[in-house]
């Protein structure tokens, strides 16, 4: 992917401004993992006014629950999980300073709006490529909620981690645009998304 845009964390407003739907990026620096249970706990802590175990400002959260590492590896297979499941938590995470998210699949209308209004960005990594993405993770360390196992919060050091911009800070949506562009069916696109995820 020669046309990939190299970005480093934490994300700055300038970098976010430059990104548009369909851009390939390669991310280097520190990112944090969190899934359903971790989001719930983080926001409960924020609600109680407690200090969070990570500084969200300018950071990227990666929705992933890796496989256990084989001996000698820093992490196992580590691809993205369905982002829609985190939709109920995302607007509040963005208000707390989060600037980037990596997941898979689309986001609901409220989240897309929150991404734009908080000048943030949603990326997808290719779902089902956890072995490939493993190579870009150089270090992994559990920093909170160890009891959650695969769902604990991990601090990852990544190098050239490949992702694609889906929702940019201007409200653009790659998945919506892409489907329209390549649709030859005359069926109307149904409103909304499936429940579950």
């Amino acid at each position: 992917m020669s046309d990939s845009i190299a970005i480093t964390t934490p994300l700055t407003d300038d970098v976010i401004e430059r990104l548009k739907p369909g851009d390939h990026v390669s991310i280097s620096g520190v990112i944090y993992t969190a899934r359903d249970a971790a989001h719930k706990r983080l926001l409960e802590m924020a609600e109680r006014g407690e200090q969070l175990p990570l500084e969200l400002s300018g950071q990227i959260v990666y929705y992933v629950g890796p496989t256990p590492p084989r001996p000698g590896m820093v992490i196992g297979s580590a691809g993205p999980t369905t982002a829609m499941r985190l939709d109920p938590y995302t607007p509040r995470m963005l208000e707390l300073g989060l600037k980037g998210i990596i997941g898979k699949g689309g986001r609901g209308a409220a989240v897309r709006q929150a991404i734009a209004s908080n000048h943030a960005v949603y990326f997808i990594a290719v779902g089902g490529t956890g072995a490939l993405l493993n190579r870009h993770i150089k270090k992994a360390e559990v920093i909170a909620f160890e009891d959650l196992g695969t769902e604990a919060i991990r601090r990852l050091e990544v190098e050239g981690f490949p992702a694609i911009v889906v929702n940019d800070c201007r409200g653009g949506d790659l998945l919506e645009e892409g489907r329209k562009q390549f649709r030859t069916s005359d069926r109307p696109i149904p409103a909304g998304q499936a429940a579950g995820g």
């Binding site: 369909g22 898979k104 699949g105 689309g106 997808i124 290719v126 779902g127 694609i164 790659l174 998945l175 645009e177 892409g178 489907r179 329209k180 562009q181 390549f182 649709r183 030859t184 069916s185 069926r187």
Partner: peptide, 11 residues
């Protein structure tokens, strides 16, 4: 023909 494509990026 729906155009969803791989990972829903369109295709």
């Amino acid at each position: 023909a729906l155009g969803v494509g791989p990972q829903a990026v369109g295709g």
